[in-house]
């Protein structure tokens, strides 16, 4: 219920903002035509412009619907097609990011020298704006002879998503307390056993919490990675086309498609987490 209230408020604010921002154009047109418009006429005119400054919600919804259901999913105009391209890059980046994050976390927890040498660089890596870095990764992977456009996108996506996984996993792998570690020592457990039987399972709640952040970061990375690839395919490319050709509706529709995709992915991660928690004996 509170969710719907918030949505309602957002829609109201959006409509008023659309009227307010699109009104100058309406008055401008009227003045050129030498006619005067009433307030009511003006409001009506702000709702259906072809290239509004700020499209009204129903326009975006219609454009979104057109993009999703209005054409064959293989069409270059289909948001399903572009969304699928972005989703693939997100997925590869996500998997790569998880792998990298977990691997680094394990080595950091295991070897103190890794903590001193790797951790500062991991933090620095996240302070570099990804929009500055993305074109370089694209150019470099091209120069390295990688033909597949998926590769640089996945790298950029992984670049953003490995960090939350790394930070959470370091914390999670270190979460067992001294007593639990002493206990394993009384059984003369090896380092490997300590890792597999205690540290890794103990880190799982931290891991899943980080996945929700990581999946969203992966999507952002994939979209940003699509911007400098020549705007050929993917939701990021759609946004770029919309902005370059002055088609705000395309931009907004792509934006919402990305948001819906992100919501779906987070939901999916949540379901996987619930399943894993149930398997690990957490209270229902």
């Amino acid at each position: 219920m509170p969710v719907f209230a918030v949505v309602g408020i957002i829609v109201c604010v959006w409509y008023s903002a659309a009227v307010w921002m699109n009104a100058p154009w309406v008055y401008d047109q009227a003045e050129r035509a030498g006619v005067s418009v009433s307030f009511g006429e003006m409001v009506g005119a702000t709702m259906g412009q072809a290239r509004p400054v700020l499209p009204a919600p129903h326009q975006v919804a219609a454009e979104l619907w057109k993009g999703v259901a209005g054409q064959a999913v293989t069409s270059k105009r289909s948001l399903v097609y572009h969304g699928w391209v972005t989703l693939q890059a997100t997925f590869y980046g996500f998997v790569l990011g998880i792998g990298l994050g977990v691997a680094l976390a394990v080595s950091i927890v295991r070897f103190r020298v890794m903590e001193l040498s790797v951790m500062p660089w991991a933090i620095i890596s996240q302070t570099i704006p990804i929009v500055a870095l993305a074109p370089m990764i694209v150019v470099l992977s091209n120069a390295a002879g990688v033909e597949d456009r998926m590769v640089p996108k996945a790298i950029i996506s992984a670049y953003l998503s490995f960090f939350p996984v790394l930070v959470s996993m370091v914390k999670g792998l270190r979460s067992p307390d001294q007593m639990q570690i002493d206990q394993l020592r009384t059984w003369y457990a090896s380092e490997a056993q300590m890792f597999w039987k205690l540290r890794l399972p103990a880190s799982m709640p931290y891991f899943f919490a980080s996945l929700k952040v990581a999946i969203a970061a992966s999507l952002v990375g994939a979209i940003v990675g699509e911007l400098p690839t020549g705007a050929i395919e993917g939701l990021g490319a759609r946004m770029l086309i919309g902005s370059q050709f002055g088609e705000p509706m395309i931009m907004w529709a792509a934006l919402f498609a990305a948001a819906i995709l992100a919501g779906g992915l987070i939901l999916l991660v949540g379901i996987v987490e619930r399943f894993a928690r149930a398997r690990m004996g957490a209270p229902a």
Partner: peptide, 17 residues
């Protein structure tokens, strides 16, 4: 492995039965 040690807290792993 000459002894079993019982700590002040049970220290059971919540993810194991």
């Amino acid at each position: 492995r000459a002894y079993g040690y019982v700590f002040q807290a049970a220290g059971l792993y919540p993810w194991r039965t």
